[in-house]
């Protein structure tokens, strides 16, 4: 008899958790979609914290171009996420910073602040390392263990990023930007997981996904997964052909602002 009572309790408990979780997921997703269609009003002036997920060579080079006009005076804290062992991207983070900082300094364009250095005019930038989601030629599906390890690494990175925030210590970043390396998908999963569990307010960690300029007719695997799940506040493609084939005549699932790379 005791067995059955325990079993009933477990079933009832699971059902409650499942219901709560479903409602929470629906709430989070609704919030993400609603902000998709809301119209912009005025330019916000408050400082913000942005996370940039870097990937392999091509993705990182493109990201450098995408964020070239970010104003470091307002985006006071820039955190770059790099996969372990990717020295190329770590080096590129410094190059990206050179570019961003030279935009708003009239003199000494070659000077750049160091990682972790808090500067009065350029704010701060830092790098967080996460475990590799997959090795080259290893698919997301055949790599559950390394993906799980990466997910844990991303959760940790999100917490240390919040802890180190120069905009508001302890608060999670406002924006996540990525253009589709495998690590980015896991990083976004980690962010959404925290939102669903209610550990991060839905107004934080807003996700901007920019599909690579190289994708003209079809989305990348990362893009397909993220669009299907509908977990990005902004989903951008850079080719009209691609935007038309996804949106069809129906609702605007993706936006096409023209070329964003230069």
């Amino acid at each position: 008899m005791a067995h059955i009572a325990v079993l009933q309790l477990i079933i009832a408990g699971s059902l409650m958790i499942l219901t709560t979780l479903t409602l929470r997921v629906l709430y989070v997703l609704r919030h993400i979609r609603r902000s998709n269609v809301t119209q912009l009003k005025g330019k916000p002036a408050s400082p913000f914290h942005m996370v940039i997920v870097l990937g392999s060579g091509g993705h990182t080079a493109e990201m450098m171009s995408l964020i070239r006009d970010i104003d470091p005076k307002r985006c006071k804290h820039r955190t770059y996420i790099v996969s372990s062992g990717d020295n190329f991207s770590s080096g590129k983070a410094l190059e990206i910073e050179k570019r961003i900082q030279s935009n708003c300094s009239s003199t000494n364009t070659s000077l750049v602040t160091l990682e972790g250095q808090d500067d009065a005019s350029f704010g701060m930038w830092d790098i967080k390392i996460v475990p590799r989601a997959r090795k080259i030629h290893q698919s997301l599906i055949t790599a559950p263990a390394s993906s799980l390890w990466c997910l844990l690494g991303c959760l940790k990175a999100l917490y240390t990023t919040a802890r180190d925030s120069k905009v508001s210590p302890g608060e999670f970043p406002d924006i996540i930007v990525t253009n589709g390396p495998a690590t980015a998908v896991i990083f976004i999963f980690a962010a959404i997981l925290l939102k669903i569990l209610g550990l991060v307010p839905v107004s934080k960690l807003r996700i901007i996904y920019v599909e690579s300029w190289a994708r003209v007719v079809t989305l990348s695997l990362s893009g397909k997964i993220l669009l299907k799940l509908g977990i990005c506040e902004k989903f951008i493609v850079q080719w009209e052909v691609l935007a038309k084939s996804i949106n069809g005549s129906g609702r605007n699932r993706v936006e096409w602002p023209g070329f964003l790379v230069e």
Partner: peptide, 9 residues
């Protein structure tokens, strides 16, 4: 686009 997304907030 970042401005726009922050604007929603």
């Amino acid at each position: 686009i970042v401005d726009e997304v922050l604007g929603h907030k």
